[in-house]
Design a protein around this nucleic acid. Structure first.
Lengths: 148, 148
DNA sequence: TCCTTTTCGTTTGTATACAATTTAATTTTA
DNA sequence: TAAAATTAAATTGTATACAAACGAAAAGGA
């Protein structure tokens, strides 16, 4: 039965399942990350530092699409755990130099098992993963177009 | 250059872009929903009530995969806006009967333009949407498997 | 150089999210 | 039927998220 309200039904939403998917995957990550004393967002930030040992809030914010208001308290928590250091730049006092510590680097070893464990849970073929990745990325770029 | 840490790089993450996609789509919704005095989650809840005029917290929680701790304050806000009513069931006082109001029903008219507006922003072909929907749904079901 | 503007990060306020606990009501069981 | 177990929703505590306002520092311009 057709109705002009069809586009307002839950089953016709595309964003809602994406939102649920994100939420439930993160939920699956949680027990794995607890062993590293990390939340999902903290894990993403640490992943950034495993690739690039030093950064600042602005760079992180642009790379991870996270607000500085989200990053400031999060980085303080990571500092408290001893995974990073936060120091004002001497060259430009506005900048905060964030650097991974030895302890933070070593954490990568403990994280090695996580991606496999998650892949098993998501349970898609390589082809499906590739397809999903490219579609999601396309949407992301479209949504980000003409802003930011 | 291959490394045993490849699976821990940001560009090899599948969940991260899904998470960003969800976040950024919701961000796109925000100005549209402001005209209805709704947040995204509140919009989802209202969408549920546009299809089924009455429910309770448990049913909502199962249908929308939202915790009662999330729903309780959210429903109180929707009640305050006059879109729903919250009344304890007389048959079983543990249950909270949540019902959409006339004002809540009328809100659907104002929401009619939103899906088109969002579709334009997401900008995928019908085929791509179908593909993305089915892949996301598959992941969601896999992740939910053997829990909940 | 002094003033305006911009930039960077922090803070404040609002809204999710969920785990864990609590409270009240109902159901089950001994 | 009285006690134990279960259920439903609310509460508490922690962690995002982001908008908007703020403060300090640096850059740019007159």
């Amino acid at each position: 039965m057709e109705s002009k309200y069809d586009s307002l039904t839950l089953k016709n939403q595309l964003c809602f399942p994406i939102y649920l998917c994100s939420k439930e995957i993160i939920h699956k990550y949680t027990p794995l990350l607890e062993k590293l004393d990390l939340t999902y967002t903290q894990y993403i930030v640490m992943m950034y530092f495993w690739e690039k040992h030093s950064s600042n809030v602005k760079e992180l914010s642009q790379a991870l699409l996270l607000d500085s208001g989200t990053l400031t308290p999060l980085l303080k928590k990571l500092e408290k755990k001893g995974y990073i250091t936060r120091v004002r730049s001497t060259k430009d006092e506005r900048n905060l130099e964030v650097t991974i510590t030895e302890k933070g680097i070593n954490l990568k070893e403990k994280a090695l098992a996580i991606p496999d464990s998650m892949a098993k849970c998501i349970d898609l073929s390589d082809k499906e993963i590739e397809m999903l990745y490219s579609l999601i990325y396309k949407v992301l770029l479209n949504v980000l177009k003409e802003e930011k």
